[in-house]
């Protein structure tokens, strides 16, 4: 699985480079503007807003790319090199999911650190005038030092891991369905999309169900994710057609 993870990373390295490049440019704009703008005229909000948009854009691009790579491997000849290796399909799928998870977590942590550094710079330049911005960092550190912070952060981390696994498993399931069992069938793509929407609705129903604890809801999400993962593995193993 690690070998597959390595090559999935290699395939995406240009995208990662572009993402970091975009972020670096926006960060440079921020660093160039901060010393010359007054915090009072609110123009400093523009580069901060750009940084936030860039972060969100890259985050969703990482998720979206995880989906398109999987789809491309099942539709085009690029999949030959992946699926002619003596690696079991679940291992290939896990590597793809793990890459999205790890890349988004690493990006998220890096982005958080960058944000902290940017707010520090802003605070040091604007002083008291930075108002709410200046209070942001101490609030974060206060929150981190508070009792129960570590389990709370670990809980969020686990919940994020479940969300990524759940979302990608469902998406991969519907893509695999359209490219294996329903391949070449009339309305095959439509049916697989409807299946995807139905599972997403079921998922949100579980999340919003009254009286259900977070733990039970998370367990049900994991169960749905595992079922989709197993079904995807089965479909690709038994019905692949490149």
């Amino acid at each position: 699985m690690l070998t597959t993870l390595k090559y999935e990373f290699m395939k995406n390295r240009v995208l990662y480079g572009i993402s970091l490049g975009i972020l670096a440019i926006v960060e440079l704009v921020y660093l160039a503007i901060v010393p010359f703008r007054s915090i009072k005229d609110h123009t400093i909000v523009i580069p901060i807003f750009l940084l936030m948009i860039a972060g969100l854009f890259i985050f969703f691009m990482l998720l979206f790319n995880g989906i398109t790579m999987f789809s491309r491997d099942l539709k085009s000849k690029a999949g030959y090199l992946v699926y002619m290796t003596p690696v079991p399909v679940p291992s290939i799928l896990l590597a793809k999911i793990l890459l999205v998870f790890l890349s988004s977590v690493i990006f998220g942590l890096g982005y958080l650190l960058l944000g902290i550094a940017d707010f520090e710079i802003l605070g040091s330049i604007a002083g008291d005038a930075s108002g709410d911005f200046a209070r942001f960092i101490p609030e974060i550190f206060k929150m981190l030092r508070s009792s129960g912070a570590v389990p709370r952060i670990a809980g969020r981390f686990v919940r994020y891991a479940i969300s990524v696994f759940d979302f990608l498993s469902i998406t991969y399931f519907s893509i695999a369905l359209g490219n294996t069992l329903l391949r070449g069938k009339k309305a095959g793509a439509m049916i697989s999309f409807i299946v995807f929407v139905a599972i997403v609705i079921l998922n949100s129903f579980i999340t919003n169900m009254a009286g259900m604890s977070n733990l039970v809801a998370s367990i049900l999400h994991v169960v749905i994710g595992i079922l989709c993962f197993l079904a995807t593995s089965w479909m690709i193993t038994k019905k692949i057609d490149l």
Binding site: K11, K77, A78, Y80, L81
Partner: peptide
Amino acid sequence: KANVAFAPTEFIFF
């Protein structure tokens, strides 16, 4: 698959 080597006619490399 460990014992089968395949050279397809298409472009397959990344």
